[in-house]
Amino acid sequence: MKDNNIISLKNIAVDYDGERVLNGINLDIRDKEFVTFLGPSGCGKTTTLRIIGGFVDASEGDVFFEGERINDLPPHKRKVNTVFQKYALFPHLNVYENIEFGLKISGVEQAERQTRIREMLELVNLTGFESRNVNQLSGGQQQRVAIARALVNHPKVLLLDEPLGALDLKLRKEMQTELKRIQQSMEITFVYVTHDQEEALTMSDTVIVMKDGNILQTGTPQDIYNEPINAFVADFIGESNIIDGVMLRDYRVEFAGVQFDCVDAGFGIDEDVEVVIRPEDIKVVDPEGAPIVGVVESVIFKGVHYEMTVGAHGFQWMIHSTLSEEEGTKIGMNILPNDIHIMRRTEEA
């Protein structure tokens, strides 16, 4: 196992009722990595997860686990465990019995079962809840039982299907930190599915952005955020201004009627491109001598920053700034070369 890959998908395609939901997925997941599939609903991220779990059969392609082909291995024989979207706890069993389920089936001794369950309850902060009915637990508690129930079996890989979707914002933030801590202390691979870009960026070692059954981009959260491969990824990973521009030559781009220096090269002369600029990368400056001048159309207070919409050159620019300007004020905008991201035109709108 020189390449250290625990899971590999080779050319996986899945058809549902004649419709292709996964379109030749190739990917490798390294051992002890926190990998997140990120994408809008219907992008195939959950299907990919279920391929790994064994609940969906691939129409084409192969699934490898530690180098072995496991296409025909049923879910109960796979060394992975899943935390389901709606937890799927056993309603007829209490917290302790829910966690015990997998251990009992694999024939673990009573004494060891007890120790392992106690460890798990401690890990997920549910000590003292052993005999509680699972239906009487809050969403966050049920969530943690589901995690304990999966982890107690010491799987090599834990699959998590939008596990925080049903929780409120504060709880979700807490659980994000909690999950990352659990993953690091147990030293196992987490494969996580979410449509929440912030969640993906916060927890992951590697983010895989998916759309329409295809993988668009794979990389570290920093890579994905700073160097999105196309306008869709840029827009999905946080808000962006996406403007049509023309690449005049290497390191020189024109958009909004102004020429800017940039750090991108390798495009054709005068090639039409899309320019992506993060709202926080637009500097508000004195209109006098500023490259772009616009009028503030609206200001919304967002807590940490103000979100301003500024009209300039027939485009509405979104700007995040800690200082607010009066609506109707004329402001200048400046963008540094490093903050200008050039994308090739994507076919779809």
Partner: peptide, 18 residues
């Protein structure tokens, strides 16, 4: 009985009989 409950059991190592 939800499908996911049955899937959860299979995921935790239960074969058809279990």
């Amino acid at each position: 009985i939800e499908v996911t409950t049955i899937e959860a059991a299979r995921d935790l190592g239960a074969d058809g009989l279990h």
